[in-house]
């Protein structure tokens, strides 16, 4: 069995949890909260792309569905955030499975384009279903979370803690998943679908499972996002968001839980540090993808097995 790779977790999350007690200003805390949000999204996409090997280019759609589900439940039915959170996760997970059903047999690069298409369709639908989604202006006035009498309000600190807690939970689940029976089957399917099938693995089912888990994580992130911002608009869920999350997963190393988090932190904080170069931001993302594929396709923490193989010969 692979060595236990989870020893980094308690310490990392402990440090992350006490960070807001250091004298950061509210802008810096907000950047950190955003990084945690992206890390959550990267973990979710990592299940789909890294574990199951499905190149998904429309992940932002599930993020959108989670955010809109939360907004809708809160504004129209008056549900508090803590109910919206699991329900949005379930809705986004279900949507991921439903949108996956028709296209799951499509392979590789075709799947990438179809998922991109679905991502765009979701965004266009959201933009045009004005009565429910507020159209291009989005939905406003979503209630902030409350714990007892304490309202999360507009300060980023409580959201940071909430996101870090969700991140810790998701990271723990992901690393367990990877070494589980299902995780092993995902890895097998990723390498050789035919052989996996002949070993009794129902690859369609396995793929849908990965989409469901990934979608649910995105839905969770979406509902926190909606509650934090208080508004949701369709342009927060552009194709560029999908590509950014994908870049984070790739930078960290496909399939690596640590990698997804580190990749998300690097790629969400660096642009803030280079604010004067903000216009170059997407250019840098593009270059990074090209260079990574060339120099280190396995990413920062990617499967060391590649290296192991080289040494073994």
């Amino acid at each position: 069995m692979k060595k236990q790779r989870r020893d980094w977790m308690p310490w990392t999350f402990l440090i992350l949890a006490v960070l807001p007690f250091f004298p950061f200003n509210s802008y810096q805390i907000d950047v950190m909260a955003n990084a945690a949000l992206y890390a959550l999204l990267a973990l979710g996409l990592n299940v789909i792309v890294g574990f199951a090997g499905l190149l998904h280019l429309g992940y932002a759609a599930f993020f959108a569905i989670g955010a809109y589900a939360c907004a809708f439940l809160n504004l129209n039915l008056g549900y508090p955030f803590w109910i919206c959170l699991p329900v949005s996760a379930a809705v986004a997970g279900a949507a991921a499975v439903l949108l996956g059903l028709p296209v799951i047999r499509v392979r590789g690069d075709y799947l990438a384009i179809v998922t991109l298409g679905f991502g765009e369709i979701v965004r266009i639908v959201v933009t045009n279903l004005e009565p429910w989604t507020g159209g291009p202006n989005g939905l406003m006035g979503i209630g902030h979370p409350m714990i007892g009498r304490f309202n999360f309000g507009v300060d980023s600190r409580p959201y940071y803690w909430l996101l870090t807690a969700l991140l810790a939970l998701t990271a723990w689940i992901c690393s367990r998943l990877r070494r589980s029976r299902i995780g092993l089957a995902w890895a097998a399917m990723k390498e050789d679908e035919l052989a996996a099938g002949c070993l009794g693995m129902d690859t369609t089912r396995l793929k849908l499972m990965a989409l469901g888990v990934g979608g649910a994580v995105a839905g969770m992130a979406g509902s926190v996002f909606a509650a934090k911002q208080g508004t949701v608009t369709p342009d927060s869920f552009d194709f560029i968001v999908s590509v950014m999350i994908l870049s984070m997963v790739i930078l960290g190393g496909l399939g690596s839980v640590r990698g997804a988090i580190v990749g998300a932190v690097i790629l969400s904080i660096t642009p803030e540090l280079l604010r004067e170069f903000a216009v170059y931001r997407m250019l840098i993302f593009g270059l990074l993808m090209i260079v990574l594929m060339r120099v280190r396709p396995q990413g920062l923490f990617g499967a060391s097995s590649l290296k192991r193989v080289l040494h073994a010969r």
């Binding site: 069995m1 092993l184 890895a187 097998a188 390498e191 097995s305 193989v309």
Partner: peptide, 9 residues
């Protein structure tokens, strides 16, 4: 058709 990236076990 082994899963080359994975260990023997």
């Amino acid at each position: 058709r082994l899963f080359g990236q994975q260990t023997v076990l």
